[in-house]
């Protein structure tokens, strides 16, 4: 296989591309209106990634009751707005978090809950947990402390709502604009065979957030995977090994 360069097939038309015309003033007004509405109805993905999940039932249920301001849990990533990373992330969980994050529809917001997502927290010298969440997926806000109180969780939700309303919760755009950097960090941890089923670059083109950092040397590796997967996979293709590590 070494003498032939991999052929990247033409990407099929995944979704409708947005004209430059459409991104005019009217569009921006509509966006602001949509943000205003969106901030009042947020669904949090029900994924207990760490111990912080223990403070979510009190936050959501009758005592602190986040539903009164419009925050409610949602079971599927495709219908959720907020990915709440509740505490430390082991490397194994981080893979699932990235898969969940990429399945969520934009605009999407990530909140880091607890000190562990900021700088490793209590597990700063643990070989198993990820130290910085924002290296792997862009985050809109963090809550410090271990364990943060439900009031702190409420506060970060309210802050996020304000940010969304003001059109400033734009971390999800950073994932498209600098996809190569995020992918590089992910590959440094999971190995070069790491790839997800979501075509992030096509999504970036769809939303119109293709920047200088969207493509780079790491996405080239990704393209090679795609080319191999569509053709007959050669013997030394590492896909099988990646699957072995993912599944027990």
């Amino acid at each position: 296989m070494s003498d032939t360069t991999p052929v990247i097939p033409d990407q099929p038309e995944v979704c409708r591309t947005v004209d430059a015309e459409e991104r005019g003033v009217w569009r921006r007004v509509m966006d602001r209106f949509a943000d205003h509405c969106r901030a009042r109805s947020l669904f949090v993905l029900h994924y207990c990634t760490g111990c912080g999940a223990i403070e979510l039932p009190p936050t959501i249920t009758s005592r602190f009751d986040m539903e009164r301001v419009g925050v409610s849990p949602m079971v599927t990533p495709r219908q959720a707005d907020i990915l709440l990373i509740t505490g430390y992330l082991s490397v194994k969980t981080l893979k699932r978090v990235i898969l969940s994050y990429e399945q969520m529809q934009s605009p999407k917001y990530v909140l880091g809950f607890g000190s562990c997502t900021i700088n490793g927290g209590m597990y700063w010298n643990s070989y198993a947990t990820v130290k910085r969440l924002d290296q792997y997926i862009p985050a809109d806000g963090f809550i410090a402390g271990c364990m943060p109180r439900p009031e702190a969780v409420q506060q970060v939700f309210l802050d996020l709502m304000k940010k969304i309303d003001a059109g400033q919760a734009n971390a999800w755009q950073d994932y498209y604009l600098n996809y190569d950097r995020y992918l590089g960090n992910q590959m440094a941890l999971f190995g070069e065979e790491w790839h997800t089923p979501v075509d992030v670059i096509a999504e970036a083109e769809h939303y119109g957030y293709v920047g200088d950092g969207t493509r780079g040397r790491f996405t080239e590796i990704l393209d090679r995977h795609a080319a191999y997967a569509l053709r007959d996979a050669p013997e030394d293709y590492p896909e099988r090994g990646a699957n072995e590590r993912l599944l027990p």
Partner: peptide
Amino acid sequence: DGGYLHRGFEKI
């Protein structure tokens, strides 16, 4: 299939 919450307690 466990290990999603592994923090290496016994090691640290």
